[in-house]
Design a protein around this nucleic acid. Structure first.
Lengths: 196, 196, 196, 196
DNA sequence: TAGTAAGCGAGACGGTACGTCACGTCTTAAC
DNA sequence: GTTAAGACGTGACGTACCGTCTCGCTTACTA
């Protein structure tokens, strides 16, 4: 490892350039919105050649996908507080905040938006973004099953849809704020159904 | 009204042109996807000058908004079958089909997608598309209240979110198909909560 | 005619833009050489959109062809001094100066250079540049025939080639300066042959 | 010398690579024209790294210069038939064919073309290509002087210009084919002047 | 007999210009 | 006054090559 700038060699791609591109894309999205994200803008901000971007990413959407995936592990880990009620009471507001307040959430919403316009991209979006997010949702419920707080035969996918569906709906469709009351009533109703 | 093409006059805007633009936008969206919708393409297909489009619509999104609103009344009217259970059993699958199978639904998904990229447009989207759609959802529940099938003090907004949120979530996020089983379980759980 | 800038209308292309492009191309060629002539540079200097250039000229070479043709009539008119000897003594140095010293000549040399690289362009170069130039050469000799200074059956094309060929050869190949002695000896030898 | 591919050593440059580059440049020029000659294309065709090219040649023009010089000795040697008339009658058509029909001639025309665009390159072109070619022209006339067919005080440079100038002019400017009649009349007129 | 260093292939890099597409603005003549 | 037509300036697109760089391999001389 040298102290000089990496300008490309037979080791393959420059990790430096990769990071700079992902960060630039992220920053521009947050600062100027999706319409302001251009390959040229990313290249300029990252101090990278346009060709370097096209060499590694088919489109700017793929850059945002990568940027999202790269940072996803950092945030939004469902807590383990010992009971399903407490876990949900902590997690759902955390999810709402993630979706509406964080830079990561802004990227996710942009990706979800683009997925409506581009079926091929939608597939990648689901595989690389939605599935990992659902894995987090699922882990929370699986813990509850392990604790016997939920029946083992529960249809997890439907349960997740009913828990987080209304939250995504508010974020992506109605724009309604997600209050504590709203998440509490979601949890209350969900638990009531489970006990039925 | 003459039998010739309207080429401008001093009587105000041409309804002919307006219709042609809305239909062209709709058609192109369905045929080539949102990325294929361009003002120039709409103008060419509608046999209309670009300037005529810009005179009446600020952007292509506004055209799609108009196109959606113009046709919305035609479809998706919640049936009145005499009982909440039957109404929901008929309506939720109808909503799912509307969102995923119809041209109208394609327009709505495109608009929802664009709303993620453009906050100003998101406001118009909610006012002109989401609110009318929710009015339909709401009318179904209000009928049930009138029939005393639901408590009068029910928080309608939350109830709607819980009923249709998971459906929109599947449509816009996971892409999971919306089966009869899924809507049935949504309805069963909803009714269970109401009777709690 | 208004005092405002022409921004395009159904009259067709903007003469203003056309002139600006031709002048810009000319200027850049003279200032920075052929390698410095880029469509983007011309567009920037002319205050014109790149697309406007591509709308009317297939390539930058066609711009230079147009620029050359537009200005050709201005210069290099063979004088009529009453005798072939005097006409040639005035014209050949004038031609040499035109080719080596003027902006027009610089354009012509660039075009001749590019003609070596591009057969299709070479055809246009010959039709639009070389033929008109040869018409000037020819008119001088035809006048001499009318004055009976030259035989009527003279092969004009060969005569022209022998008179101006060595001059073009020096300009395009050897780079040797074209002195008065050189043109004088060309004329002397040519006249000697004619009297043979 | 081994039977394996030369992959670099401390004895200096690889003659293998040098040859491959020159041949590739030549071939590409002939096949696809000057515009198709790129450093990357040459490198790919020669099976050589781009860096190897840049190590030894400042630009692709220098490659073509080298390629021309390398092969120049092979062709276009003025014959010695015992008399100036016969020598010229053999040599001028040979020169015309060389310029218009051979791969070498194609390279020369490309170099002459580029010389119009690049003054620095023009100097090298004259020193390395034009001067050697003129040496051939000159040797023919010098032989004639030695045979006393031409006066000793003849200005050789002017004589060469008058003999070959019209030929180069046709090749580089008018594109007119160079017929036997044309070269014959050049020779006839040249000899007539000499006897004057 | 092992270093060591020069030339090599490969190929990623920061750039420049290309030619295309669509944008939103404008001007005109016809109706 | 609105229309169809279409040229305009603008800006981003994705591509092609440029010339530079770093790397690991091959090889032959040198210690």
């Amino acid at each position: 490892m040298t102290n000089t700038r990496h300008h490309g060699n037979r080791h393959g791609r420059s990790e430096q350039a990769r990071q700079a591109v992902l960060e630039a894309a992220d920053d521009i999205l947050v600062e100027r919105g999706f319409a302001g994200v251009t390959v040229e803008g990313i290249a300029a901000r990252a101090g990278v050649a346009k060709q370097t971007i096209y060499r590694w990413w088919p489109s700017k959407i793929d850059i945002l996908l990568d940027a999202f995936v790269a940072d996803m592990n950092e945030e939004l880990t469902p807590p383990d507080l010992g009971s399903l009620t407490d876990d949900l009471a902590a997690y759902l507001p955390m999810l709402a905040t993630f979706l509406t307040e964080t830079d990561q959430g802004a990227v996710l919403r942009a990706l979800a938006g683009q997925a409506q316009h581009d079926p091929a991209m939608a597939t990648r979006f689901r595989d690389e973004c939605v599935l990992p997010l659902r894995a987090r949702d699922r882990s929370l419920l699986e813990r509850a099953i392990a604790r016997s707080e939920l029946p083992a035969e529960l249809d997890l996918d439907s349960a997740i849809d009913q828990l987080v569906g209304p939250i995504y709906y508010r974020v992506l469709v109605t724009g309604e704020p997600i209050t504590r009351e709203f998440t509490d009533s979601l949890i209350r109703d969900f638990l009531a159904m489970m006990r039925r």
